[in-house]
Amino acid sequence: MSPPRSTPLLAIGDLSVALPAMQGCVRAVDGVTLSVTAGQAVGLVGESGCGKSMLAKALMGLLPREAEIGPTSQIHFDGRPLLALSPRERRTITGRKMAMVFQDPMTALNPVMRVGRQISEVLRHHLGLDRRAARQRALALLRQVGVSMPRRRLDHYPHQLSGGLRQRVAIAIALACGPRLLIADEPTTALDVTVQAGILDLLARCQKAQAMAMLLISHDLGVVAGRTQRTAVMYAGRILELAPTRKLFGKPRLPYTRALLDAMPRLANPPRTPLKAIGGQPPDMTHLPPGCAFAPRCRWARGRCRVETPPLESGRGGDHDHRVACWYPLEGA
């Protein structure tokens, strides 16, 4: 990690998560180093199975019981080493100073508990509010996240709400204690585009109003494009490129990022623009090739790529904020 100007709010160092599989174990997250400064929005993109959700779960302490975190892994939040804390100490941080919004709001919410009580519960547990104060605050939160008829919604069950409203309720719960970091894991993937735009606007607004940092995880490069300052691209458990969002989209140095951008159909293109598909199949995490995991699908791969794994390094021109894990990075057009 290059020495940051100020201590980052979240500093992940060499984080590895191993999951037992049928044959041996799978390194779902493999030596990830990433930091998020207070108030900053960082995007994390990658295709399904690349480990982005496992990374989020590791941050929140929600990993499955059989998962193993590597011995040299570190997660510092606000200067405190999360992995060294007792579960009890850790719970004073997660859910309160660090909250998460999940992809599927129906499974994230308790189906047999009224919305109002689900929000109040967080407030009473973490902030020790009494029932009446918690309900008042819950009402204000629903209003803040743009739920129409908030007073009536307090008494609704999740199944009575639409997908977009449910996600707003889930966001209200995440924001309840005024977290300093919000982890949003595919928050709009299950929603229609019209609703998606509204939810992303809401997240951006809350982030600005409360000077909250956000880690926005998505498989959709379009979701991350206009809403983050920095973006990390993940492939087969590793971060392969990390750069200011504008640079990453404008002049990607990683062949995989370039290939992803070229494979996306865009509204800006004329109809019937041929798409440059990425050949081959997504990596099989149980049988990763030696060297760079993307090498079998990479047009520019050479001998070294299939033998040695490239580290995440900053560019030769001393470009410290653009890091790429590639032996032969693109020079940028």
Binding site: V193, Q196, G198, L200, D220, G222, A225, R246
Partner: peptide, 20 residues
């Protein structure tokens, strides 16, 4: 509302009246 992978384009907006 369509999110384009282009950071120079203003982010997609959801300006429909009501969300439902």
């Amino acid at each position: 509302a369509h999110p384009e992978p282009d950071p120079d384009r203003p982010p997609a907006t959801g300006d429909l009246v009501g969300m439902e």
